[in-house]
Amino acid sequence: MTKPLDPEMFDPVCPSGLMPIRIGDKWAGMIIQCLEEGPRRFSELLVPLRTITPKVLTKSLRALERDGFVVRTVHAGPARHVEYALTPLGRSLLEPLDAARAWAEAHMDALIDARENQ
């Protein structure tokens, strides 16, 4: 069993939308990060991604699945549920995403200034 996702994983005041490198859409990198520790249910993903709508999360997960980054598994039985997990291809994105996140953190002020000057 994986530990619960931290609700504060993505600080609402952190401008994560400033990430200059995106895989798929605005949310894909954050979804991939949420799946780093193992499979998660849809409702678990909504906790740290608190500003995403269920419709947009569904759309992002489907795109990540289509692109081969995420696998969707339906568990049958009395407590039927669906889990999402990274594929080996999706897991290969973790290191580049970590590097991009570190770069964005180091250049946060310049990124904010650039966006505000537009």
Score class of each variant (00 low, 15 high):
M1T: 09
K3I: 07
K3E: 14
P4V: 09
P4T: 09
L5M: 12
D6E: 15
P7S: 11
E8Q: 13
E8L: 11
E8P: 05
M9S: 10
F10I: 00
D11Y: 04
D11N: 14
P12T: 05
V13S: 03
C14R: 08
C14G: 04
C14I: 00
P15L: 13
G17W: 15
G17P: 02
L18T: 05
I21H: 07
I23T: 08
I23E: 09
G24C: 13
G24D: 02
D25I: 00
K26G: 01
K26N: 12
W27Y: 12
W27T: 01
A28G: 15
M30V: 03
M30T: 02
M30Y: 02
Q33V: 13
C34V: 06
C34W: 02
C34F: 08
E36K: 06
E37S: 14
G38I: 07
G38N: 10
P39Q: 11
P39S: 15
R40H: 11
R41G: 12
R41I: 04
L45G: 03
L46N: 02
V47E: 06
L49W: 01
R50L: 10
R50A: 12
R50F: 15
T53R: 01
T53Q: 04
K55F: 15
K55R: 15
V56A: 15
V56T: 11
V56D: 08
L57K: 00
T58I: 05
T58L: 14
S60R: 04
A63V: 11
L64V: 08
R66D: 08
R66F: 03
G68T: 09
V70G: 00
V70D: 08
R72I: 10
V74M: 13
H75N: 10
H75T: 02
A76L: 13
A76N: 08
G77V: 01
P78I: 10
R80C: 11
H81A: 04
H81P: 03
E83T: 15
E83L: 08
Y84W: 12
Y84H: 15
Y84R: 01
L86D: 10
L86I: 12
T87H: 14
T87Q: 13
P88F: 10
R91G: 14
R91F: 08
S92I: 11
S92K: 04
L94K: 03
L94T: 03
P96H: 03
L97I: 08
L97M: 12
L97Q: 02
L97E: 07
A99D: 14
R101Q: 08
A102I: 01
W103E: 10
W103S: 04
W103Y: 04
A104V: 06
A106D: 14
H107V: 05
D109E: 14
A110W: 07
A110C: 03
L111T: 02
D113C: 09
D113T: 14
D113A: 02
A114L: 13
A114E: 09
R115M: 05
R115C: 06
Q118C: 05
